[in-house]
Design a protein around this nucleic acid. Structure first.
Length: 226
DNA sequence: GCGACAG
DNA sequence: ATCTTGTCGC
């Protein structure tokens, strides 16, 4: 596409913000009919402050059988700044992505999608790069307002922006645990992102399988480095 | 100036 | 995210 040339990772926080404002208009929100045949979960751990470990786990749907797992370890220079997560984790994710031999039908990221200050969370941003449907599933809220969904599994509330528009959902997947925040990334819409995340979250689990397994692998691989 | 603030 | 053991509860 034409946005790749202007998108270098060697940018300052100020430039990163301007880049997000341009890229957000390229995001496409549309229905995702039916179900994916395969879904990928992405997560990163940090063996050292300046070293990251990205893991991508591809699962078959609806069996949840693991089809492929790839990982990439490398230096991470961009700091963690709320709203600019893609500039810290995106580069390593893309390197791992190249190692995948079978591209999944859908990718779930650990972070926001539409529910972002500039409507371009890491799920939306990476979706533009890989040109596949993506969803953002975060363990806490970054932007927007919502009421706490009651402590009953499967309860949902809308997350809205200052204009009152729905930008995501607070989903209580597990009783007694904080809700997760779901928002569409690219090539999918609000209702289908919520529908599919619910479909991929097993009873008793707070996170959907792709994300949950990616997190387990990222932590286990980090330990096995010793 | 005072909070909020993905991982 | 990371530093960290045991412990309370379903």
């Amino acid at each position: 596409m034409d946005y790749k040339p202007i998108h270098g990772w060697d940018v300052s926080p100020e430039e990163a913000i301007e880049l997000q404002k341009k890229l957000r208009d390229l995001v496409v929100l549309k229905p995702f009919p039916g179900y994916p045949r395969s879904v990928a979960g992405v997560d990163l751990s940090f063996p050292k402050p300046d070293e990251g470990l990205a893991v991508i786990v591809v699962l078959e749907f609806p069996s949840f059988r693991i089809a492929e797992v790839v990982h990439e370890r490398g230096k991470v220079s961009f700091p963690y700044i709320p709203g600019l997560l893609a500039f810290r984790e995106g580069p390593l994710f893309l390197l791992a992505w190249k190692k995948l031999r079978m591209k999944p039908d859908l990718v779930i990221f650990d972070g926001q999608g539409l529910a972002h200050p500039r409507k371009l969370g890491i799920a939306s941003h990476m979706g533009l790069f890989i040109e596949l449907p993506t969803i953002g599933v975060a363990k806490s809220k970054l932007f927007g307002s919502c009421v706490e969904p009651e402590d009953v599994p499967n309860t949902v509330t809308h997350v809205h922006d200052e204009a009152g528009k729905t930008i995501g959902f607070a989903l209580r997947t597990k009783k007694g645990a904080p809700p997760i925040f779901v928002s569409p990334g690219h090539l999918i819409n609000l209702e289908d992102s919520l529908r599919l995340v619910r479909e991929m979250t097993l009873p008793g689990q707070r996170l959907p399988e792709p994300t949950r397994l990616a997190h387990i692998y990222t932590q286990r691989l980090k330990s096995s480095l010793f």
